[in-house]
């Protein structure tokens, strides 16, 4: 779950108080990073995304309107950053950039991390929005309605995407079993 700063700090940061903004970053960075970690599956990429998100936060915080919960707003922002980052980084997702990720376990990471990356690559290949849906629901524990509101799609679309993901991963597993 995204951490939210208290309202006073937020207001002061929005008014241009640098120290208050620093506090906001301190509070939020952890959850931004963890989210990015789930989204990318690669530490270095997650750090890049998190940093990009912090920069965007700096530029956008003054336009936060208190209409949506801060955490929801922040999710949208981080997701947008992640999308932008991927677009710039490798236009062909899951090409050899990820071969490298798959092939060379980075230091001090577990097997589950490698596996996560494989899953993410497969899910990403299914089309736009699938990775977002998976990470928000399975990773951040949102229910379908919350994820749908955040992604700006219908709740049934979220359910459908998750179903497709399940099906796809199950069939991938079956194929692996056959080989």
């Amino acid at each position: 779950m995204m951490m939210s700063p208290d309202k006073q700090t937020l207001k002061r940061a929005m008014d241009g108080d640098g120290a208050a903004f620093g506090e906001v970053v301190d509070i939020c960075y952890d959850s931004i990073f963890r989210f990015a970690m789930k989204y990318t599956g690669v530490r270095q990429d997650a750090e890049d995304v998190a940093q990009l998100a912090c920069i965007k936060l700096a530029q956008a915080i003054r336009s936060y309107r208190f209409e949506a919960a801060f955490s929801t707003w922040l999710y949208t922002l981080v997701l947008n950053c992640a999308h932008d980052w991927y677009r710039q980084q490798n236009r062909h997702r899951s090409d050899d950039v990820e071969i490298e990720h798959l092939a060379s376990p980075q230091d001090s990471e577990g097997e589950s991390q490698i596996y996560l990356r494989q899953v993410l690559a497969q899910v990403e290949a299914m089309g736009d929005g699938f990775r977002d849906t998976l990470v928000l629901v399975a990773g951040e524990g949102m229910n379908h309605a919350e994820a749908a509101a955040l992604l700006g799609v219908k709740e049934s679309t979220v359910s459908w995407r998750l179903h497709e993901i399940r099906k796809k991963l199950a069939s991938a597993q079956r194929q692996e079993g056959l080989q």
Binding site: R34, A50, Q51, C54, G110, V119, V135
Partner: peptide, 19 residues
């Protein structure tokens, strides 16, 4: 699988850079 990812704490250097 995704929860396991939470074990990855952000590195202080990266945090400082970002900040």
């Amino acid at each position: 699988l995704l929860d396991d990812s939470d074990n990855n704490a952000p590195s202080e250097a990266a945090r400082a850079r970002a900040k």
